[in-house]
Amino acid sequence: MPGVGPKSAQRLALHILRATQEDVDRLAAAMHEVKEKVSFCRTCFNLAEGMLCPVCSDPGRDATVVCVVEEVKDLAALERTAEYKGQYHVLGGCISPLDGVGPEDLRVRELLERVGRDGVHEVILATSPTVEGEATAMYVSGLLRPLGMRVTRIASGLPVGGDLDYADEVTLGRALEGRREV
């Protein structure tokens, strides 16, 4: 499992061995339920319990602004700021030759189809403030600019080399507010 090293795995195994049968059954049932009910939102690839995620199915959200993030956890971090009222698009990673991830492995085609179709006025590139995040933002902006919409990048000032979900809400809110055209 991602993020679980041998030591944590051992702790988890011991915890499960010590737990009651009921608790273990509940955990197994919860895992089943996730696999059965939760999938990716058809529009933005956030986690969703139906076809659309809570953001995309909220009529109060501004569908003309789309914020592009690498992962679902980045989307969750931006939602915590409670400042952003637009929609999202989850790429599913960043372009990283070291990890063998190219543009074709990300949901870039889906983004282009969506912004061409849905009357989007602005795309905010909120990939991580890392070398890979910048490279991915450059790639996506290169494809979007010819389509004639406003393309912006969130302001720097986030922890260098960090993930979006490490930044506090205030910093992240400011980064979003201070975005500039690219």
Partner: peptide, 23 residues
């Protein structure tokens, strides 16, 4: 950035190698 561009060069992935030129 150098390791990323070199990895792309080694794998003959010219799109990614070009992309990592600016960073």
């Amino acid at each position: 950035a150098l390791r990323q561009r070199n990895a792309a060069l080694r794998d003959q992935r010219s799109t990614e190698a070009a992309l990592y030129g600016e960073p």
